[in-house]
Nucleic acid binder design. Structure first.
Lengths: 151, 151
DNA sequence: ATCGATGGGCAAGCAGCTTGACTATCCACA
DNA sequence: TGTGGATAGTCAAGCTGCTTGCCCATCGAT
């Protein structure tokens, strides 16, 4: 009994990493197939923060866990590729609000579709009930902070 | 019903990424606490391939999914830090076998401990049975290939 | 009006990976 | 048996994405 628990503990890390790796690869591939091959996974994490109402460079940097300078460069690249734009901040003349363009929203939707596509066979494999249990349990375990690239 | 399934599908990616991010962070922190702060997550993936019997540079490169040159540099760094050593290959004079040193094995054990430590509260939260179900289900879904850094 | 704190850009530097060219060795075949 | 293409690995150079250090403009408390 305790042996099997130890075996579970030993197996879990690899399983978790393998599965989340597969998810990232699936989203990447699905995004490319839909014409968004020029966004890297790190951009996806940024989109999550920018999606609802936009964010300042500083907020984005904090969310991603890197420097403002790096966040600014990342935004430069996304501006160049047409996914976001910098607007004047409504209440603070120092700050600028970074928001998604229409293409940015399209990319976000494509990523959601690609994710759903990647997950679909998992539902197939486990069946809806057991899949629901899995999601519920993961929800109990997962921290609620920002989702960052983890390598 | 179908609504709740769609909600599950939408929630799963973030949960999976959050949890595996937490795991990586936990292993990293636990490794640092045990005196192995100079290994990056990418090194960990290499250790997995090197652990049983060592590997050649080419095998390691293929496993990690990058070039032989990059694998060679990674090994250089690990040699410099005392985690691995290059030995002559027993049957092929062109090749060299990269194997873990005693410190490399110690680091591997520390990583396992740190992973177990990170996972422990999860068992606490779900209870042993439900945790076992979780691991079983993940095992049915996870691909069986190499574990690579995914960002 | 002043001054420390905050938002963010500029420039340089560094780490980790890729590409291309090269050497040493292997092994299949004439 | 020796010759030639394939393979293991390294050297050197270059690129990309991030950090560090510095700067200016604006904010807001006094």
């Amino acid at each position: 009994m305790n042996d099997s628990r130890a075996a579970d503990v030993r197996a879990l890390p690899a399983l978790l990493l393998a599965l989340s790796g597969e998810l990232v690869a699936g989203v990447q591939a699905g995004g490319t197939a839909r014409g968004f091959g020029d966004v890297r996974p790190a951009h996806g994490y940024a989109f999550v923060r920018l999606a609802p109402d936009g964010a300042t460079i500083g907020e984005l940097a904090e969310y991603l866990g890197f420097t403002k300078q790096a966040a600014s460069q990342l935004v430069d690249e996304l501006v160049r590729k047409g996914y976001v734009e910098r607007r004047p901040h409504p209440t603070d003349a120092r700050a600028r609000l970074v928001v998604l363009t229409e293409r940015g929203w399209a990319c976000t939707r494509a990523a959601d579709e690609a994710a759903a596509e990647t997950v679909a066979p998992w539902i197939e494999e486990l069946g809806p009930e057991r899949f629901h249990t899995l999601v519920t349990d993961l929800a109990r375990l997962a921290p609620r902070g920002p989702i960052r690239p983890s390598w």
